[in-house]
Simulated scan of single mutants.
Amino acid sequence: MQRLTSVVFWFLVFGPFVYGQLDYKFYDSTCPNLTKIVRFGIWSAMANDTRIAASLLRLHFHDCISNGCEGSVLLDKTSDFSSEKDANPNRNSARGFELIDTIKANVEKACPKTVSCTDILTLAAREAVFLSGGPFWSLAMGRRDGLTANMSAANTDTPSPFEPLENITAKFTSKGLNLKDVVALSGAHTIGFAQCFTFKSRLFNFDGSGAPDPQLDSSLASSLQTVCPNQDNSDTNLVPLDSVTTAKFDNIYYKNILNNSGILGSDQALMNDNITATMVINYSKYPYLFAKDFGASMVKLSTIGIITGQNGQVRNRCNIVNQN
């Protein structure tokens, strides 16, 4: 694993640097212990909460894909705007806000008014993956925090597990990502859990057939029916997205899809397109390839709609905009 992560690190550090005012050494002199502070905060949290790594990764994705990487998902509602926390993709499911607030407070003690919440969330996602056994990628820093939230964008731009693959792909490409990014970033589902309501339609009377989704392994379907019985009070029950290596970031997710064991319909749909199916097969065979492509896609994701320079601000607290 050490060799794997060092190779991915080399690839991304010495690849093309095209991210404008972001800089790999942005905090070297102003907050030299930033990465250590973030990593320790997440390591400590993971000891008590096995879900937190996946939650942080998801939180970063939801921030960037809907309104750009500017920390808007972290903001509480005000009299001026609604909170993205209350958008359908985030309400009662987005987690990790308190941990980001805690890490921000520790960063403020070491480096007051220096590090944006957006950079902290971006680093947190990488550290969560790395501490779960996944790849490490180099990140250029210098993002600023936005001044408002966009609940409408969070509702419309965030991919849903109920959408067909072409819709999800369109949402990615509208942000400058591509089909490879769709498949690579879907690999984030190698860790984390899903609530029953996100896939229950596959378990009972799928498309009016009176039977489960034929693309779902029959033994898995029976097991899921036990955890997610066909009644409303089971909707929020949790099921691991990868029951084989639930807390380990690896390529088993793709092997599960090949075995018709992708829990979410949007995951299993990757096998319905020749191009994405080929990528799934390759990632299932070659863990290094997945690690490399996932890291590269995360770097691309982390530059969507960023604010730099004199724009935006460095929030004192992540849940509220600084008042002049």
Rank of each mutant, 00 (worst) to 15 (best):
T5A: 07
S6E: 13
V7N: 12
G20S: 04
L22F: 07
Y24F: 14
Y24D: 14
F26D: 04
Y27H: 03
D28C: 11
N33M: 05
K36C: 01
V38T: 04
R39A: 13
F40R: 15
M46S: 05
I52A: 02
I52R: 01
A53F: 08
A53P: 10
A54G: 00
L56G: 00
L57A: 04
D63R: 08
S66R: 04
E70C: 12
G71R: 09
S72G: 09
S79P: 02
F81Y: 14
R91F: 13
R95Q: 13
G96N: 09
G96Y: 08
G96S: 11
F97I: 10
E98W: 08
I103D: 11
K104Q: 14
V107K: 04
V107N: 06
C111A: 07
T114V: 11
S116P: 15
T122Y: 03
A124R: 07
A124D: 07
A125M: 03
V129A: 06
S132H: 01
W137G: 02
L147G: 07
T148S: 14
A153Q: 14
N155W: 03
T158D: 15
T158E: 15
P159G: 05
P161I: 10
N167C: 12
N167A: 12
I168W: 09
T169K: 10
A170G: 12
G176L: 01
A184C: 01
G187M: 00
C196T: 00
F197D: 06
F206T: 09
G208V: 10
P214I: 04
S218M: 07
T226K: 07
C228S: 03
N230G: 01
D232F: 02
V239Q: 01
S243W: 01
V244I: 15
A247S: 05
K248S: 11
N251M: 06
I252A: 08
I252P: 02
K255V: 03
L258T: 14
N260C: 13
I263N: 06
L264P: 04
I275V: 15
T276N: 11
M279W: 10
F290E: 02
S297W: 02
L301W: 02
I306H: 02
Q310S: 15
